[in-house]
């Protein structure tokens, strides 16, 4: 009986964890370019580049998680951690923080052409964030952002 209860409890807790933790999609550059191509109808798409080792990135994540709750916003978090860190670090981190935004890990090493293609203004420093307005207008920001700064870009016509 005790054992049954334990198993029940175990399956219950696992399902909660599964509910909270988003899957992390490992992507290549082509998929990233596709992601950065357009925004869904009536929505602002936000693509944020971060890593578990980047402190300002982690500090600004709650702000992106918060705006992701808005109807007209869609947040995509692209981890620049190495693929070897996926299970050990990135998944653990995503679970611990119960991240609800769409999660990716960019599995590429030759980044010079990719950084430039994502946005000319991007020097490669992270955090870096790309905003695609409902009308397709691109805004790029390098460095940590506050929720207010994020909202001011979303609110732009």
């Amino acid at each position: 009986m005790k054992r049954l209860l334990f198993l029940l409890l175990l399956s219950f807790t696992t399902s909660i964890v599964q509910l909270q933790a988003q899957d992390i999609q490992v992507i290549k550059k082509e998929q990233l370019y596709q992601l950065a191509e357009s925004s869904p109808e009536g929505k602002t798409k936000i693509i944020n580049f971060w890593a578990t080792w980047c402190r300002p990135c982690i500090e600004e994540l709650p702000a992106f998680e918060s705006v992701n709750k808005m109807e007209q916003v869609e947040v995509h978090l692209v981890s620049m951690d190495f693929i070897e860190e996926l299970d050990k670090k990135v998944k653990n981190f995503a679970q611990k923080k119960a991240l609800n935004s769409s999660l990716y890990l960019l599995d590429e090493t030759d980044l010079d052409p990719i950084i430039t293609k994502v946005n000319e203004q991007w020097s490669g420093a992270i955090p870096a964030t790309l905003f695609i307005s409902p009308k397709g207008k691109i805004t790029f920001h390098e460095g940590k952002m506050t929720e207010q700064e994020i909202l001011s870009i979303i609110d732009q016509p």
Partner: peptide
């Protein structure tokens, strides 16, 4: 010139 991922200053 070239770009790479790095930490913000």
């Amino acid at each position: 010139s070239s770009k790479a991922i790095g930490c913000t200053i």
